[in-house]
């Protein structure tokens, strides 16, 4: 099967054609395009960012992210876990708010501070 992708490495945005069985990439202009094409059809990963309600603070929400990119198919499962959780101030940037989310080995960490009320 072939998959059509747009390369995201530079503004040129090459239209890639990736053969998912042989892992050959057509349409790329450089090595970055080839690497991107292969990783997108074999193990695509994404950073997920969202918010969590924060109690005991002037703020309503604290922003969060995955500590590193997670598998693309897990995006909505991770969001579901984040949406179940409420946290309490004080929160500092980098605090781990959920560890090992969806058994991925990846944590959900705070990306903003929330001081106590």
């Amino acid at each position: 099967m072939t998959k059509n992708l747009i390369c995201i490495n530079c503004p040129r945005g090459c239209n890639l054609e990736v053969d998912t069985e042989t892992l050959t990439v057509k349409g790329n202009s450089c090595i970055k395009g080839k690497d991107y094409g292969i990783s997108e059809v074999t193990h695509p990963k994404r950073m997920v960012t969202s918010t969590m309600p924060v109690l005991n603070s002037k703020k309503i929400l604290v922003s969060v992210k995955t500590s590193s990119p997670i598998n693309k198919e897990d995006i909505f499962n991770v969001i579901k876990e984040i949406n179940k959780k409420k946290v309490s101030a004080p929160i500092k940037i980098g605090d781990i708010l959920i560890s090992n989310v969806c058994n991925s080995g990846i944590n959900i960490v705070a990306t903003s501070n929330a001081e106590e009320k």
Partner: peptide, 12 residues
């Protein structure tokens, strides 16, 4: 928009 955002915000 950036290609990256077309891919990761729309196509995904």
């Amino acid at each position: 928009g950036l290609n990256r955002n077309i891919v990761q915000c729309l196509n995904d």
